[in-house]
Simulated assay, not measured.
Amino acid sequence: MTVDPNMLLAIVAMAIATVATRIGGLVLIRFVTIGETQRRALEAIPPAVLMAVIAPTALVTGPAETIATVVTALVAVRLPLLAAVAAGVVTVAILRMALGA
């Protein structure tokens, strides 16, 4: 196996950019006063990003995955994240067996 130096350099550069962005945000946020509106907007970002990543896959892959996504979302309203994920995995497994997918 050979290592392409350009590929390695690209991976290292992306890692450095990621770490610098995270650390920069933590350092800079100390100098910013966040109001209630900004706090609510910042709290809405993680679920929005998660839906942007999950929705295309859940709605395009098949009926088992789509139904499991709905089940996971419904369980997540009441139970902890681990229970919601477990419910989704079990649902998709059962539906794939039942539907022959």
Rank of each mutant, 00 (worst) to 15 (best):
Q38M: 09
A10R: 07
G35A: 00
E36G: 12
V92L: 08
L81R: 06
V53T: 10
L82R: 10
R39F: 01
E36A: 14
E43H: 07
L82H: 14
E65F: 13
V92H: 05
G88Y: 06
M7T: 09
T91H: 13
L79Q: 07
V77E: 07
I34D: 05
T21N: 03
V92W: 03
I67K: 01
D4P: 01
L59W: 15
P47F: 02
A93G: 15
E36H: 07
L9I: 06
L28T: 00
A15D: 06
A48K: 11
L9F: 02
L82F: 15
P47K: 14
T21L: 08
T66I: 08
L81T: 11
V3M: 11
A64G: 04
V32Q: 03
R40N: 12
E65A: 14
P56E: 04
T18E: 01
A55M: 11
A68W: 05
A83R: 08
R78W: 11
A15E: 00
A15R: 02
A44S: 12
A58W: 10
V19G: 04
V19W: 03
L26Y: 12
I23K: 09
P63R: 13
V75C: 09
A13D: 04
A87W: 13
E43A: 14
T37A: 13
A41K: 09
V32M: 03
T66F: 06
V60Q: 13
R96S: 10
T21W: 15
I45F: 05
A17C: 08
M97E: 13
A64S: 13
T2F: 13
A93T: 12
V32R: 01
V27Y: 00
M51G: 06
A58V: 15
A48I: 07
A55F: 13
V90Q: 04
T61A: 08
V90L: 15
A93Q: 11
A84Q: 10
L42V: 06
M51R: 03
Q38A: 12
P46N: 01
A10L: 09
F31T: 10
A73F: 15
M1N: 05
R39T: 10
V70D: 05
M14L: 13
G24A: 07
P80M: 03
I16Y: 00
I23H: 06
P5D: 04
T57E: 13
V27S: 01
R78I: 01
A86C: 13
V77N: 04
I54V: 12
M7I: 14
V60W: 04
I23T: 11
A20H: 02
A10M: 05
I34A: 11
L59C: 11
V32Y: 02
V12L: 02
A68D: 10
A17F: 04
E36L: 02
L26E: 15
G25H: 09
R96F: 13
G100C: 09
V3R: 05
A73N: 08
T57K: 11
T91R: 11
P5H: 00
P63Y: 10
Q38F: 00
A15W: 05
T69W: 14
L28W: 07
G62M: 04
V89E: 08
P47D: 01
P56S: 05
P47L: 08
V53Q: 11
I29F: 05
A58L: 12
V49P: 02
P46F: 04
V90C: 12
P5V: 02
